[in-house]
Design a protein around this nucleic acid. Sequence first.
DNA 1: GGTATGATTGACT
DNA 2: GTCAATCATACCA
Length: 202
Amino acid sequence: MDDQGLPPGFFARPPVVVARALLGVRLLVGGVGGIIVETEAYDRDDPASHSFRGPTRRNRAMFGPPGRAYVYRSYGIHWCFNIVCGAAATGAAVLIRAIEPTHGVAVMQERRRNTAPRLLSSGPGRLTEALGIGGGHDGADLAAPPFVLAVAVEPAAIATGPRIGISRGLDRPWRFAVADSPFLSRPMTAATGADSAAAGAG
DNA sequence: GGTATGATTGACT
DNA sequence: GTCAATCATACCA
């Protein structure tokens, strides 16, 4: 694929649709990043979502226009990077959980203190550290520098399953991943399996 | 005002 | 497998 930006209206769709469509998209911050291989969807009527109880100071970006960043502090230590989606002010977002490093690997290794390559950006807290994303990016327009988003590859098989690290909304299979990627934060459970064309792999 | 929880990670047994 | 780090937010008084 080429390096054109994402189509207009890409993020103006429901979070489950966007979470799936983001797999295979290249994400760069200041020229550093890689291919998105794992995402999770969060919606307004979703008890696991920060937007479930309405706007607060922290989740303000979730109720703004789609295509912006929602960045928040997790466990007081890590940053987590989301992309706001859906119609404007609907409180929907997609959490980016893992990318496959392709650009600026040396920079990422330095930021990550020479962590093993497979663990460079395989997890929401890890990828924000590797890409240099922090609270200053909350609400930032992802169509403008330093961000670059562009379709890079079409995943052969997409796996779905329950989201990670939450205590509510566990019934919603809103975690999406490139089925055969070695760069996932955690493997997909066998029970959920891969959908789409993966059925022919057996 | 106080206390419990969390969209996590890294270190340790 | 267990557990600490570390703080904004949520919830209760």
